[in-house]
Design a protein around this nucleic acid. Structure first.
Lengths: 206, 206
DNA sequence: CTTACTTTGTGAATGATTTCACAAAGTACG
DNA sequence: CGTACTTTGTGAAATCATTCACAAAGTAAG
């Protein structure tokens, strides 16, 4: 549901950019492939932002939604594991939206990682994780290390006071209940696509 | 649900690797953080693979699951958009699991894309998409182009007979009903994590 | 063969999410 | 001001997913 809020935020931004000032739940729903009642319910959850017979003021609603998501505050992020994937994440504009700051990266081999990266985020040795983080507020860690060390690194991150982990490692990590984890797993998506593709070909034959 | 099957497949592989021959739904559930009834139900959906009072034969079950997912067949994949993200996907071992073959990439600037990539997948000009694909069976296209051209490229892919799209572009793409689309959206995940992080800090204060 | 366990497969119960449908509240315009 | 129209916010209904709980079917061991 929070993910949908984030979608609303994104689409409102694009409306704003296009100079559209007023929008209905039906239009938002159409653009995102949702049901309009759902859009209204999601928004109504946090207050009454709409005007019956009119719709929503784009500017207004966007401000509200950003307030709910707290994307109007600074989020401090670190990257752990600067291999192929990590490097890509660093150089991929659009990964870090407005409000998110990548402070530094960590790798077992910071030299070669630093060379690969074209961003100006400093890369430190993972052995120095604790000392570098010490005293800093870190909100989110992006985890992109090899599977073998994922749990161990996670434990260290939690000890360091990281509050949330975006996990790109294709494996479940164990964390205390108060730590938020979100999973991004490409190959899983690819495999599940394969299932439906095959279905389609069978359907054609039958 | 199909995604869970893929998870089962992955964990069974690791059991097999560890030389474990017999497994119970409860153990699989524990490892994946699921309920054992769910595991049994998911599997029972496609046949009776288990033995009451014993559990499941790992080898056997794995074969069955791979059969269901059709990951025992070859899936032919292309990559469209070889920018930062696309490059990373090409070099990221583990993206393409067993059974998936990356045939080629396409970009508006194939030269610079080719240079960046350390894989040996050939990169062609996107203008030649139709002619290069012509006559080939392409199952899945991985979409990693800029937002502005995503819909246009999608239309061309569909015309070329691509059956499924793994979309890394942070926007909804419109496709005919018989085309499967799966979305991977990092920044959405990051934003939603932020929401919970803030909640947590508030919770501490209160 | 029999008794004591274990674990599956699955209806029924519960819980969560989505959609429907409509009163209430607004707009727009003569 | 009043009438016709639009769109919200939201209970109630419908749909979908998860979990419970237990009979049935097996194992294991004497």
């Amino acid at each position: 549901m929070i993910k949908r809020l984030s979608l609303y935020s994104r689409i409102l931004q694009s409306f704003e950019f296009q100079g559209i000032e007023k929008i209905s739940s039906a239009e938002v729903a159409r653009r995102l492939g949702l049901n309009s009642a759902q859009v209204r319910k999601d928004l109504a959850c946090f207050g009454q932002f709409g005007i019956p017979g009119f719709g929503y003021h784009v500017n207004d609603l966007r401000k509200q939604v950003r307030g709910i998501l707290k994307t109007d505050r600074e989020m401090r992020v670190i990257l752990v594991g600067v291999g192929n994937l990590g490097t890509a994440l660093l150089s991929y504009r659009g990964f870090l939206k407005q409000g998110f700051t990548m402070l530094f990266g960590f790798d077992v081999n910071p030299r070669s990682a630093e060379g690969r990266t074209r961003s100006n985020v400093p890369i430190y040795d993972i052995r120095d994780l604790e000392s570098k983080i010490e005293g800093q507020r870190i909100d989110i860690a992006v985890l992109a290390v090899p599977v073998e060390v994922a749990q161990e690194v996670t434990n260290r991150l939690v000890k360091c006071g990281v509050l949330a982990i975006l996990n790109f490692v294709p494996m479940r990590i164990e964390v205390p209940a108060h730590i938020q984890v979100r999973y991004v797993d490409f190959s899983l998506e690819l495999e599940s696509l394969a299932y439906y593709v095959q279905d389609r070909e069978k359907a054609k034959r039958e």
